[in-house]
Design a protein around this nucleic acid. Structure first.
Lengths: 331, 331
DNA sequence: TTGAAAGCGCTAACAG
DNA sequence: CTGTTAGCGCTTTCAA
């Protein structure tokens, strides 16, 4: 119905009385042309609405100008900032981003990778749930960058809460807390393992007893429900895998008649909720946008003929203390 | 670096001793071949890892198997469900989805459309901020579906809160409220205009005075700040453009020592926060996923040679009463 | 600095 | 039912 015939390079060339190759060069390698010619071509092009056909270009160059991005769950507030910045960066580089959501299912993720492979020139896998072996195989046939997944030999960018977590534990100790709880999130998540072990280590170093609790679905209501387990463990400070769980915890405590932070301190992670809780949630702010940008920049770099070792970037988060944490209650 | 040479149709054909077109047909039109041949081709294909080259195919058919989706702000919880379901539906149809975020800026949006046009076979514009004229032009050259934008002549799917809003106003009246406030969101948003005028109309019909307030950025903190204006307007019930603003309002009231819903009732819209506020937010639940699905299905349909009138779908939301609304305070 | 010509991998008539 | 033959729109040697 809407058959709108886009102008081709030949039409434009004819119109200008030059060869198609000249037009081509005006777009792909302007340095090889007289600036004047480049100008003339470009002007006319935008006048008649000529845009190079990506498919024809991809066919010959083998580069599709498309990168794929797979996330486990778009609706999780952790990902939009990454996604957004990745898209923006791609755009700056003249790339398009195709997106897919694996639903946290490794099989589905693998399938998506398979579908994307023939049409993308690179892949960004965020918080991948795939086994290392699969990732290595994928990275062998397609430039691949991992976000928040640390696999030797594959370029990766990690947003880390490690140092901030150490600081948080130290702060709790200084504020008189004598018992800590950590509420974990999705067990398949690399970040989850990372954070849990870091808090554990930190607590041990401080001689602080730590209870390990779980909210495997990473939901608000799981956080709500797990609050009572925190109290019965006798912890006066909780660190949650993420803000959503932390938010649930706060509500759970309030529903149980406990005051935050007077009776119990709650620390979230990711800082996705900013100040939309009451009391405002202390959290760990991560450079998600930076990660999005870095991921596609790294992809770009690793797609080139560089023989450099696969990059590994670690972006440290910052502890942000707001109203949900404070001194331990007097006993 | 990873120069992996994919097998071509010619190689596969030679290997099988058939013509390239036969291989082609085995993938694009198997009905025209002996089932046995199809099988032989497919088997060998997956054996040597042959996958049709999308770009070559797109070049000749003019169909790229890619659809573009543009949203004003991925981070807004309104869009992920749409996006997610759109992607999933596209996938089912063998399409890929390329995504872009316009940042709510019409100029940027137009630019994005321009960049996408040559490589997509259709466009979904969600909550577009473009003037009608631009939209019409776009839809003329490319199959286009609008989400939450109502332009005559262009296929669109609208998620509407209208009936639920009527019901909400009626409920407020029945519960003894004598003065209402509506807090609007982004002024460029079609939904905003839609909802505001519907509430206004409904209030008028009920003889209920209504104050019109604004939170143009649609943020939590704007909601928080506007709470005082609601009280000074004397309203005992507020309807907010969306849940985020409503959430801010609740906090604002609480900070001012007012109890929700005892002193003031708060109704959100979109139901994106579910029960993560205290008290749990009454809201209007919209079929966002349905909209995502319908959008790409409609796109698919309208890309065909149908001469049917552009479809217009309206998905009505449901009023969900939770703890943030109730009877008007006794005076 | 520019032009001519040869395909990239695939599909779509048209034959057979 | 299968093969042959032209290109789709573009980039890229190779000449001029």
């Amino acid at each position: 119905m809407n058959r709108y015939k886009a102008p081709t390079i030949v039409q434009l060339a004819k119109l200008l009385g030059v060869a198609p190759s000249t037009v081509s060069r005006a777009f792909t390698d302007p340095g090889k042309l007289l600036p004047e010619t480049v100008d003339r071509v470009r002007r006319k092009a935008s006048e008649i609405g000529y845009v190079p056909n990506n498919h024809a270009r991809a066919l010959i160059t083998g580069r599709s100008s498309i990168v794929g991005l797979i996330v486990p769950d778009i609706a999780n507030p952790f990902f939009p900032p990454i996604l957004r910045q990745a898209q923006r960066t791609a755009e700056e580089q003249g790339l398009s981003l195709i997106l897919a959501d694996s639903d946290g299912d490794p099989e589905r993720e693998l399938q998506l990778v398979g579908r994307m492979t023939p049409q993308v020139e690179g892949l960004v896998l965020a918080a991948s749930r795939l086994p290392e072996k699969s990732l290595v195989t994928i990275a062998e046939r397609l430039p691949t960058v991992l976000v928040n997944r640390d696999v030797e030999g594959i370029p990766r960018v990690l947003v880390s809460a490690d140092e901030a977590l150490d600081l948080a534990v130290a702060t709790f100790v200084r504020d008189g807390h004598r018992s800590l709880a950590y509420v974990g999130g999705p067990p398949e998540s690399w970040s989850n393992a990372q954070r849990a072990s870091r808090v554990e280590r930190s607590a041990r170093e401080h001689g602080l007893p730590m209870a390990r609790l779980e909210a495997p679905g990473g939901t608000y209501s799981e956080g709500f429900d797990v609050a009572r387990a925190v109290t019965s463990a006798g912890a006066t400070a909780v660190i949650a895998f993420d803000d959503v769980i932390a938010h649930g915890l706060i509500s759970g405590f309030q529903a149980a008649g406990l005051s935050v932070p007077h009776d119990v301190s709650v620390l979230g992670c990711d800082d996705t909720l900013s100040t939309t809780t009451y009391p405002p949630l202390s959290s760990i702010s991560l450079d998600l946008r930076g990660a999005g940008r870095l991921a596609v920049e790294t992809l770009r770099a690793s797609a080139g003929p560089s023989a450099a070792a696969p990059a590994r970037f670690e972006l440290e988060g910052k502890l942000v203390l707001r109203g949900s944490t404070g001194r331990a209650p007097e006993r």
